[in-house]
Nucleic acid binder design. Structure first.
Lengths: 325, 325
DNA sequence: AAGTTATGTGTAACCGGTTACACATAACAG
DNA sequence: CTGTTATGTGTAACCGGTTACACATAACTT
């Protein structure tokens, strides 16, 4: 491994001078600078981040904590974050918590031990005050509290939008799927939809689901039609479940959207590829990732007067599982 | 920040003793150990990884380089890796290269600068000898070369299996979709399929695709039916494209699998949720991730006589886009 | 011309761990 | 009872960077 000492020797200067050239700070003579640069080049020097991080008590790493990257909503978030922080030279330490408090705590500890500059968390144990003692900038993503800067979409409004759309488009026996109870944004959507459905002159039933996994999605879809075979409008807890419902409905010979309208949530990439393409409430995942990353970077730089709560718009994406005018 | 010195002072011993307790090596008296443990506990001490990593020239981080986590095949790989390395106390530094050499080099440099213990790479510039100079254990995933340990599935056989299956099930005008030229495993599949199709008494055409992205998938599907409207069997370059083809075929009023059979590749989770569910060649992504992680851990521990090339089985998953007997 | 400020460079302390080495004492062997 | 080995603990060097500080010289001021 080539160290700063090797470069110093090669260039005939002290390590301090090499460090100054490296960081472009302090005074360095023009000629000296050239010599050092040449030495770095010929030795193929790459400064050790760990040493820098130790002295500065701050690495160029950002901790990213997700519930489960296997859920298609999150890869997009992650890319939005990665692409943004990379531009400022930061890299990601990734952790999946599976919504388990213990894993979450473990990852947070790892992040701290590695001197991360900041953290972005899209998990659910924020209410526990596990982040409080930390002196590290934190941005919450896809959820919000008073305490920390956060980027989220208006779940309540998304839920309302879904319900309003379905009612407007003529659904009269609506089934509302409720997402896992411990997933905060899922509850917001649910409440939003209940707001609207309660005020409308229609029947509706609620089906509670306890996970977002692919394996279970098919089961929720089956349960849905067993319990409520006559429903003519489904508000799915997310797009995966929505796609599973399309699947099951077609299997049962229902016509979409004539017999049954379906509306998803998230707008994951595969939603436009289903047949019929899934109408859904879009959360702009990539952009949310970007926004969270930018907010974190601003917090790190201690930029004054930054907006610390960024609410992203939700939007109805009309495709073919809802009726047209 | 609580350091080892604080603990030493609190326990009334030297830092060396604290370190010995921490690492459970060297001699430590029973009583002393208790005192130190108590001090650690009461101060809520968490040792700084960066300092350890500097001295040992080795961190507890593993670099993971993927083409694009947004492609649904990769989150599963990533989880397989993460879940496995976590058991040995390692964490992941994640990078997406988008198959760009420059990003790949950047990430490799970052990994080195952070003293990673090992790297897992699923990207394509392995032929360039960018990994050669590194003194860091490397495992290739989803591709293979002579030089490095690797975990991959038999693409050639997968391609053959897809073609053989389609021919057996009665397709007579097969369209073979060729994946991006720079993606090695895609070429293997292609060649395998060509092997079989060339030997069979059937017509076939080739449609070249240049990306795996969701946005483009729909375009490939459209192009497919414009160029080869009478095809009765499609070997898709992967499941995303396969799902897009189902979508387009249904839109055009084709019956699946009566008029058109489709076979995908990968078996991503959403493939079973399409309608009709997509028949496909399965690569066991999660298990491949696990295997790669285990192989890397063994390499790190310098376990002797380990198998360095692990070929995972491919398997035909029969669903409803191919005809049954 | 003397005083002040700007520029250029090196020495050594520091970041928070790990460990080689020195030293002391206890346990054991013959 | 002395020599050897095992056990327990502390001091200080080390990992590879960054930077406070000291010092020297050059460039301005007035």
């Amino acid at each position: 491994m080539i160290t700063i000492k090797d470069v110093a020797r090669e260039a005939g200067v002290s390590v301090a001078t090499v460090s100054r050239v490296l960081n472009e700070n302090g005074y360095v003579g023009e000629e000296t600078k050239k010599k050092v640069l040449k030495a770095m080049n010929s030795l193929n020097y790459s400064p050790n981040e760990v040493a820098r991080s130790l002295y500065k008590r701050e690495s160029k790493l950002i901790g990213l904590l997700l519930p489960d990257i296997t859920n298609p909503f999150f890869p997009q978030l992650a890319r939005g974050i990665e692409d943004t922080v990379n531009q400022s030279g930061y890299r990601l330490l990734l952790g999946n918590s599976d919504e388990e408090l213990e894993k979450e705590l473990d990852y947070i500890q790892t992040f701290v031990q590695n001197n991360v500059v900041g953290m972005i968390s899209a998990t659910n144990h924020v209410d526990q005050n596990i982040y409080d003692a930390l002196q590290i900038p934190l941005v919450l993503l896809d959820r919000t509290t008073d305490q920390y800067p956060s980027v989220y979409s208006d779940g309540r409004e998304g839920g309302r939008l879904a319900a309003r759309t379905l009612v407007d488009k003529g659904a009269r026996r609506v089934t509302l799927m409720k997402g896992p109870a411990h997933v905060k944004p899922a509850q917001d959507r649910f409440k939003g939809a209940v707001d609207v459905l309660s005020d409308a002159d229609i029947d509706f039933s609620v089906l509670a689901t306890t996970s977002y996994s692919f394996e279970d999605a098919k089961g929720w879809a089956e349960e849905l039609f067993q319990k409520y075979p006559n429903t003519d409008g489904v508000i799915a807890s997310n797009d995966i479940v929505g796609i599973a419902i399309i699947h099951e409905a077609l299997r049962l010979g229902k016509r979409i959207p004539e017999d049954l309208q379906i509306i998803g949530y998230d707008d994951i990439p595969q939603s436009s590829l289903s047949y019929p393409p899934l109408s859904t409430i879009r959360q702009p995942a990539y952009e949310m990732g970007q926004a969270a990353a930018e907010l974190l970077l601003q917090t790190i730089k201690k930029e004054p007067g930054i907006e610390t709560k960024i609410e992203m718009p939700v939007e109805f994406i009309e495709r073919d599982t809802t009726r047209k005018e």
